[in-house]
């Protein structure tokens, strides 16, 4: 693991019965950078995410995370501890907000652990001690800040399930940021967004990286997002890493194009040469 890396996935393998979803995958994500994980449908990207965030226990391999708070082996941590202790936050491919709660409430739930401590694990909070009130006010301010960042301050008191699709996507990112993560994992944040919305998303992600120093790991299909904001790209196909490099390098890699077009390498090269 390099000193500058926040995340290092080594020889990760995940099997479901006889199916190998991820096979001996290794890659790293650099601190304070945006690392993308791309690949055709079914390449095993979301499986990698689920292993990193503890929803699956990998069949073998190690997932190391290191930042200012310490160093962890994520495959050994329980699901909720990965967010609570190792400070890894994530969003989901099919948005998973709390639809019956307001946007503000969604962001308050994300600050559960901070508020739980402040409320003396409920007992002090029940009697409304001043220190809890102050903590709650701070939590509301943080939520307000993020609502403002995603342009949803006006809709803070509306049910999350009532927001338009694009707003829900941004709200989910804001909710993840309210856990104050060191590593933010985004599973297809631009899926279903129109061009204007994806441009706004790019801006938001760049801002998160610049102003909060949060490292970002990104799964994305939308190449306008990936190519524009990623610092480093890993390409997966059939659970195996077939390439990695800067956006520029990936754009010109025939293997990647072959994987996307589902064609042979030679054919892809032919296609590329034909284009240029």
């Amino acid at each position: 693991m390099n000193i500058n890396d926040i995340l290092s996935v080594e020889n990760l393998t995940m099997r479901f019965g006889g199916i190998v979803a991820v096979n001996d995958l290794s890659f790293t994500a650099e601190r304070g950078k945006i690392t993308a994980l791309i690949g055709p449908n079914g390449a095993g990207k979301t499986t990698v995410f689920n292993c990193i965030t503890g929803f699956y226990k990998p069949t073998s391999g190690t997932i190391k995370l290191r930042h200012s708070d310490g160093e962890w082996r994520l495959e050994r941590l329980n699901d909720f501890r990965i967010s609570k202790i190792a400070r890894v936050a994530r969003t989901f491919q099919n948005i998973r907000l709390f639809p019956g709660m307001t946007a503000l409430e969604n962001l308050m739930v994300a600050q559960h652990n901070t508020l739980m401590r402040a409320s003396g694990f409920t007992f002090l909070g029940l009697f409304g001690v001043p220190s809890y009130r102050a903590a709650e006010k701070a939590a509301i301010d943080l939520a307000r800040y993020w609502l403002d960042q995603i342009g949803l301050l006006e809709r803070a008191d509306d049910a999350a399930g009532n927001l338009p699709y694009g707003d829900q996507r941004r709200l989910e990112i804001a909710r993840a940021m309210c856990t104050e993560p060191a590593l933010l994992c985004l599973d297809e944040p631009a899926a279903g967004l129109n061009a204007r919305e994806s441009a706004a998303l790019n801006e938001l992600l760049l801002k998160i990286r610049a102003e909060h120093g949060t490292s970002i790991l990104l799964i994305e299909h939308d190449m306008s997002v990936v190519m524009e904001i990623s610092d480093h790209i890993n390409v997966l196909d059939y659970g195996v890493k077939i390439a990695d490099g800067t956006p520029r390098q990936i754009r010109d890699n025939p293997k990647v194009i072959a994987a996307y077009l589902g064609a042979d390498e030679e054919e892809a090269i032919a296609v590329m040469e034909g284009e240029t």
Partner: peptide
């Protein structure tokens, strides 16, 4: 209080709760 919000969040989506460190 946070515990009550966590209960309601649990009712809404348990997977999301776990992802938020609850």
């Amino acid at each position: 209080l946070p515990i009550g919000r966590a209960w309601e969040a649990l009712r809404e989506d348990e997977v999301a709760c776990r992802a938020l460190g609850i």
